[in-house]
Simulated scan of single mutants.
Amino acid sequence: MSQSLITQELGIIIAAKNHNPTLLNSDFLKYSGIVPAEWELARQPISTQNVSQVAFTNGVMIVAEPTRVIFIEAIEGKVATEIIVADIAKKYVQTLPNVEYEAVGLNPRSYITFDRQQDAASQYLAKTLLSPGPWQEVGTAPVRATLNLVYTMDRCPFYLTVSEAALRNPDETSTPIVLFNGSFSYEVKSVTAPERLGNLHQIIDNWQADLAAYQEIINTKFLAKVPDNTTLVPNVFTMTASAVA
């Protein structure tokens, strides 16, 4: 049986020293050419000394803190050519080249749903990914688990958290899901600002290869034994634009 993920969002987290969160606002983003002038705000921006946040109606959100900048795009239903968060992140660091950027995390988040049984997600974690034993029999209810895994890849460490959650439906019911939060963690190894920017751009440009590796790991190593009541969905990164439509 072929399983694939509902890929919900892609995040790019850039660690930085002495970054000023108050710089982030919609005017700065538009006047600097980081985002197009026609983008509309999804809600009122947040701006404080410790955190600023700007969210747009197209699903892109930028959060600035003193030690990091976070770029997130909601990508469910999008094909790879429609995903723009990497370009936004590259334009941001190009606009602020003197910030001391230290590391980059390329973070996809996906989930699978279980429609038939409310306890199917927890059973998947407890019975498919974990070994049975008396340690699971403590207490008055089935054990609930979250897995934190670290893989050593050729280019960087890959962190994966597998956890149980739920989606709230319009009729106020909930659908059990298993979340897969991934993070490819890169160190920025440069001294001068031009070297740093070049290294950052090179890392961010890996996003499609990292997404492909992330999906391959989960689809082939984690979902091969998912029970038959798992909802099957198309893989948005291998579909054509016409298939999405």
Rank of each mutant, 00 (worst) to 15 (best):
R109L: 13
V162I: 13
S122E: 03
P97E: 13
T146A: 14
L125Q: 02
A103L: 07
V138R: 03
V143G: 06
T113Q: 08
N169E: 13
L130C: 02
L160V: 05
L106K: 01
Q94V: 05
L106A: 00
A126F: 00
T95I: 02
T113W: 00
P157V: 05
L147V: 15
S110I: 05
A121R: 01
Q136H: 14
R155I: 09
M153Y: 03
A121S: 05
Q94C: 01
E102S: 11
P97L: 10
N148L: 13
L129D: 05
G139S: 09
L167K: 10
L149E: 12
T146R: 14
L130H: 01
E100P: 01
T95H: 10
P157G: 04
L129H: 04
P132N: 06
S110V: 07
T161L: 09
P134L: 06
V99D: 14
P97C: 10
K127S: 10
G133H: 08
T140Y: 08
A126E: 01
G133Q: 08
Y92M: 06
P132M: 03
S131I: 08
T140Q: 11
P170E: 12
Y124F: 15
P157C: 07
Q136N: 14
V162S: 00
N107Q: 12
L130A: 01
V150K: 15
E100K: 13
Y159V: 12
L130V: 01
S163C: 07
R155G: 01
D115F: 07
A103P: 00
A121G: 01
A120Y: 06
L129W: 07
Q94W: 00
A121F: 06
P97H: 12
V104A: 08
V104Q: 02
Y101D: 09
